[in-house]
Design a binder for these strands. Structure first.
Lengths: 164, 164
DNA sequence: TGACGACCATCAGAGCTCTGATTAGTGTCT
DNA sequence: AGACACTAATCAGAGCTCTGATGGTCGTCA
């Protein structure tokens, strides 16, 4: 498939040359992230959780009573998205939400017993995925990968196109 | 925040130790992919496209008349997802779909003139993002990154947890 | 005290993504 | 011809994600 795209590009000399999928670092990143997402989803599913729900519960378990806005920041999603995730967690009885005693516009969220149980169950398998990932690399390789990913991040976030 | 998570884990000796976010290669991968996604979305937005729409148009422009199922495979999404994407592209007048002359159950999809124009406009800026990414790395570094990503992929797809 | 800015929560709407199920055409093998 | 397997397309339903908009609360500062 990659070869086909390449040939197609070379043959069609009348249109401007495009980058092939394989040339694009982004394609590789996307595919791998997609596979990771799928693996994690399969890992946490038996606990009745989705990956975002697992992430939220994970943070909530370490910082119970945190606000939804703060939780959203930690999970790298928007507050609106977190509202959606929390709604589903609450209707599943995995978290409970109560108004903050002092700041009435803040709602404290904490895992229920059922929530902690689901988290524990999911975490065992999710950690398994990460462990397996870590085991596939030497510490040096893992560090290289982290460094290169950080470079990608830096190249992206300093990209002036975002301000265009 | 990472430090806090670490301390929290160490202090709570009564519960099993969890992997911190920073230990998890998956977290780094996810964050970077998210940034990439955001950058690309910003790049193609002026053309009135979303990233999945851009990807679909990109493939369609090189292989006009392709089936939706084939298109889905190339774009790494399910056929159902591609149906959604195509519905939006069609109602925006960027593609047209006609029954295959021989195989009646297959529908041929091709970009319209407006679709090609949008693609061209989006591609210019999307390629800019990729180019900028590529420029941030030497060819050797890029190759290292690609290799390490492939290793991640391999570690994931051979993971027996997916069959558990 | 009152205005303003910062922040929290959430609704509305659009789009992507998945799993699961249905309908239908094609090709093969008995 | 009939049964079976494969593939294409698509509906249904659930969930995540974003942008944009609204309304409420808090703190600060004139």
């Amino acid at each position: 498939m990659v070869v086909n795209a390449y040939i197609t590009n070379v043959v069609r000399t009348m249109v401007p040359m495009r980058m092939s999928f394989d040339e694009r670092l982004g394609s590789h990143l996307k595919r791998v992230e997609q596979e990771l997402q799928a693996a994690k989803a399969a890992a946490v599913k038996p606990a009745g959780l989705t990956v975002p729900q697992y992430a939220a519960l994970f943070v909530l378990d370490e910082q119970p009573g945190i606000s939804a806005a703060e939780l959203a920041r930690r999970c790298l999603v928007t507050p609106q998205t977190m509202t959606t995730i929390l709604r589903n967690l609450e209707s599943a009885g995995l978290i409970e939400r109560t108004p903050h005693p002092l700041h009435r516009h803040v709602i404290e969220t904490r895992p229920t017993a059922a929530g902690r149980k689901a988290l524990e169950q999911a975490d065992k398998r999710a950690t398994g995925v990460e462990r397996r990932l870590a085991d596939a690399f030497s510490e040096e390789e893992a560090e290289t990968l982290r460094t290169l990913l950080a470079r990608v991040s830096q190249a992206l976030t300093t990209d002036p196109i975002l301000k265009t």
